[in-house]
Design a binder for these strands. Structure first.
Length: 455
RNA sequence: GUGAUUGUAGCUCAGUAGGUUAGAGCGCUGGAUUGUGGUUCCAGAGGUCGCGGGUUCGAGCCCCGUCUUUCACCCCA
């Protein structure tokens, strides 16, 4: 058989032990904060029924779903007529019934409906799992990536939004990434469209406004005209797009601009409540009310969150919002929820670019024993057992090879301490502990080693 | 999905106008140093030039296809 060069599918990646240490640091940090706010873990299958997924992410999203072929000889059950049509979309529904999940929110909605009688509402759940999108890969964009979601359903309180901002702030402070936390409210956007007399064009308006940073005001206006907005409405929109000042000033202006829009005022009131509450806390990162923030309008109905890293050019690393009726499509009405999703892979890229990882990863081996032979093994193994029992990650080289090779092994593995026990040490009842970073060595008794490694 | 772009040693990259035996740095292996890694010195190993086809006396280099990479748009974490 011909030898084939191994490779992995487009947009996917392998992660080495060193990379996994870094990734687990991210996951552990995020998880720690989720738990601290009372979120509980769930997991859902990698694949869902296509009927669960299709139509939830818009037309674009449907195209990006990975579909799984049915088992068995499905073509024999397909009519010649259908095959002759060569209509991929139509054929797909006959030969594929399952797909890989596209995000964690829709599977969560499905979960809530399916398990509604077991769930204790308000239900706070977190979920850290991979999702798949048949997108064309580019920077910060993969076909398989992890999302870390925290959502709470069954409560309308703005307290949830306040806590989510605290959660975001806590996580990125811990990861040492400087971010700006952007907030907006879909109701405010609706109000703006309403006072412009363009309620039906809300999506076009917000999508265009969202590009302000990227393409500039002129191009935004061109796009608005392009989408059929009258010049008068565009003119009326200008002061809103360019709204400046601090959050309270922005809210005050909005309040007067939106005075004739009930929904708009509701949005302003919600935002005001969140901003007021947040003033009680000493947040590490900037919180900014940004009217040009649009995001997934597919299901968001209230607050919208988005987080951007200040020091790295990459898409948003975290985003979410409130949805009033996510579970409605699965038959459970009036369950409001709000959630946030951390993009672990982009956070990984940001941390790599800024090299913000802690020096020593707690998952790594802390102390390494050089192996000199049988007698030394017998002497060392009980010490290793004691260390491990005390919670110290420890290992011994499995063979009595050249010391140089063993030292290099420990060095390559970034192990901070090496214990050397040969004939001399066994006789004297002491051991040599080498600090691999400073190169310094000292003699210790076994008891002293245990105390040193566990402190 | 649209338009570009990339691929040569484990990694980062040279490779002249198409010419005989494809190079460097880092890494790797061994030695200097049989109880000391990370620094230094010496030596060595390592290549279907992404894959398939074509043009040519001759292709890493030119042409076509394909896969992959990166980027913009769309959209998004």
């Amino acid at each position: 058989m011909a030898i084939q060069k191994p490779y992995i599918p487009k947009g996917t990646r392998d992660f080495s032990p060193a990379e996994m240490l870094k990734r687990n640091y991210i996951f552990d940090t995020i998880k720690k904060h989720f738990v601290r706010f009372g979120y509980q873990p769930i997991e859902t299958p990698a694949m869902e029924n296509l009927s669960t997924l299709i139509g939830k992410y818009g037309e674009e999203g449907d195209k990006l779903l990975f579909k799984i072929l049915n088992s068995g000889d499905f073509l024999t059950k397909t009519s010649d007529e259908l095959l002759a049509q060569r209509n991929s979309q139509k054929l797909t529904t006959k030969i594929s019934e399952k797909g890989l999940r596209y995000d964690l929110t829709v599977p969560f909605a499905r979960y809530v409906v399916q398990h509604q009688n077991e769930i204790n509402f308000p239900f706070k759940r977190y979920q850290i799992q991979p999702v798949w999108r048949a997108d064309r890969p580019q920077k910060g964009r993969y076909r398989e990536f992890f999302q870390c979601d925290a959502d709470v359903v069954g409560t309308n309180s703005m307290l949830n939004e306040v806590e989510i901002v605290q959660l975001i702030d806590g996580i990125f402070s811990d990861l040492k990434i400087n971010v700006v936390i952007k907030l907006n409210n879909r109701k405010i956007l609706s109000g703006i469209a309403e006072i412009l007399g363009q309620a039906d064009k809300i999506i076009d308006i917000t999508v265009a406004m969202d590009k302000l940073d990227k393409i500039g005001l002129n191009n935004v206006n061109i796009e608005l005209i392009d989408k059929g907005l009258p010049q008068t409405a565009v003119d009326q929109l200008q002061p809103i797009i360019l709204l400046s000042g601090n959050n309270n000033e922005k809210l005050a202006s909005l309040k007067s601009v939106l005075s004739n829009s009930e929904i708009g005022l509701k949005g302003v009131a919600e935002m005001q409540e969140i901003i007021d509450y947040l003033q009680m806390f000493d947040l590490q990162n900037e919180v900014e009310l940004d009217l040009t923030l649009a995001r997934g309008l597919n299901y968001y109905t209230g607050t919208i969150f988005e987080v951007k890293a200040n020091d790295v050019q990459i898409g948003s690393i975290c985003g979410g919002g409130r949805y009033d009726d996510l579970t409605g499509i699965f038959g459970l009405k009036d369950v409001s929820g709000v959630g946030i999703s951390f993009g672990a892979d982009r956070i990984f890229d940001v941390l790599n670019e800024l090299d913000l990882y802690p020096k020593h990863q707690s998952e790594n081996t802390k102390v390494f024993f050089v192996n000199f032979g049988k007698a030394e093994e017998i002497f060392c193994l009980p010490i290793l057992a004691k260390l491990r029992k005390a919670g110290v990650n420890a290992e011994i080289y499995p063979e009595a090879t050249k010391m140089k090779k063993q030292m290099k092994f420990a060095n390559d593995k970034a192990i901070p301490f090496v214990v050397i026990i040969g004939e001399d040490e066994m006789q004297k009842g002491e051991l040599v502990l080498k600090n691999m970073e400073s190169g310094e060595q000292k003699f210790l008794s076994i008891e002293e080693l245990l105390i040193f490694m566990t402190k």
